[in-house]
Write a protein that binds this DNA or RNA. Sequence first.
DNA 1: GAGTTTGAAACT
DNA 2: CAGTTTCAAACTC
Length: 610
Amino acid sequence: MGESEGSEFPPKKQQQQSENAYFQTKKLARQLDFTQGVLPDHPQSQPSPLQKPPLLVSPAAAQSQSQSQPQPQPQPHPQSQLQPQVAEIQVVPQQQTQQQQQPVRAVKPESPKSIPIPNTELKDGTPKKQRQCNCKHSRCLKLYCECFASGTYCDGCNCVNCYNNVENEAARREAVEATLERNPNAFRPKIASSPHGTRDSREETGDGLVFVKHNKGCHCKKSGCLKKYCECFQANILCSENCKCMDCKNFEGSEERQALFHGDHGNNMAYIQQAANAAITGAIGSSGYASPPVSRKRKGQELFFGQTVKDPSIDRLGHFQQGSHTRPPAPSSSLPSYPVARAGNATILGPSKITYRSLLADIIQPQDLKELCSVLVVLSGEAAKTFSDQRNSMEKQVEDQRETLLASSAHERLQSHKESDADKIVANDCSSANHADKVGPDDSSSDGADMPKGRPMSPGTLELMCDEQDTMLMAAASPNGLMGRGCNTSSQLPCGQGMAEAHAEQERIVLTKFRDCLNRLITFGEIKETKCSSLARTELGNQKDRLSNGIGNTRTGTGSQRGPFSNGVAKAVPPTAKPTQMVTSIVSTSGSDLQKIPGLPQNGDNKLKS
DNA sequence: GAGTTTGAAACT
DNA sequence: CAGTTTCAAACTC
Ligand SMILES: [Zn+2]
Ligand SMILES: [Zn+2]
Ligand SMILES: [Zn+2]
Ligand SMILES: [Zn+2]
Ligand SMILES: [Zn+2]
Ligand SMILES: [Zn+2]
């Protein structure tokens, strides 16, 4: 019992310090419905394969701005796919490498285990649910919590003493701040993309593939990076030079790795696990961690692929090693890419030029809007329903509708990108990045910006979408039965009066939600502003210095070769992800810097009031 | 479902 | 920054 109790909890320890702004959210929807009260609750409606719900705004911005991009990622296409929860990953476009691997999807949203399904009726076939956490001691306010880490509220989770919800927004906000303080990129997407221009290694280039890498890399010791314990593996990406894993078998050309996918057992997880175990065991057996590492594996690789990996440098750990152990922050690599990126991504806002960009730019993405619309629709329907008829059965209907709506929107999204399962990739950059050249030491690498989902939308677009909203509303409503059931209640109400009231209620709810949303946006902007300014101050000095040499430094020139050895890119093939798609999706957005902002501010002074 | 393993995140 | 502890998921049985 102790723990479970919830409410009280000792929260404290960490929280003392934090204060800052925080936000991030992914799912707007959830937020919007601020209430679970209103909605029946089920969170899940997640239509998309993506993980959690949608978000509207992204906080990333703050981060992004802050750092320039340390990383090299030039890349062009920011994508929007979603990715697993991995922490940070970068994607680079590349050529195809392996075809075979695709079978497995990297991210699988669902866990095999039993999840309590909140929703009930999901059809089996389609999973829609987003994943639910089972946190017991973190209050879902630490990155340990997948929900929190992904910027979403817990919804339908099995957590104990959860504070990651609207009701505990204040606490959550603090936690976010603290988290960001610790790691400004904490909520960033884990993936970034970059063009990989060179095809050096791969002969098989197809085109358009994307190279993805985890920004921070993994540090696995016993999994061989062939189990989901490994974030790289889980994200379906190859380990890269950013990884500090031991005895890594998650690289291109790895026999063990190939064995896992061989065939396509796409779904057959059991098989994969087994194979992974065999691989791991085998390796260990023969050499133990430290031993003669390379032997088997490498050989195999060479044989199979010959050149690819080649000598480079795989150290005993199986990594590429560049210099020697520590990863060279790769000066070269980081810098270089910059230029490339630009080239590749023409669309990006001007990296080089410093143009003014609204702090709020790109925060709202198309999908977000859709989500918002969907949510509002649902709310509206629900309100109407509630108002007119409070029968229990209705809940179900609403839910279904909601699910449907979300699903459709997600579906759309997907279609445009084509699959999504893979990951969210982001490109980098952004905006603020302007300063180009900064190269950070390495780590921060990320920076670039990754966004989790989608593309940014301009204000104009947003406006346009408003109309669409109406349309969507109607369209969505009628077909699904919102009208038929929920809405219609209002419209069909016998008396006009009831209807009017119902409409009033609907309007109230919708507007309220929207207001909340805007407030959040405001808060986000404020935060971003703050960060920006401080950043600017901080970096001004540095920048100057760099400028002098900086740009000039192009060691990289084209980027084609970034590193000493083949560009450092990782090994790469994303099995699941489809390269092409990714690329496509990525493109559109260039400035993705924002992440989602979770927070909902409700307090501010300048916030909108209803 | 209980128990173990694992590596990220948090903490010191 | 390294070493340790905490945590929740992945995995095993
Ligand atoms: Zn949680
Ligand atoms: Zn949760
Ligand atoms: Zn929770
Ligand atoms: Zn790993
Ligand atoms: Zn790795
Ligand atoms: Zn690895």
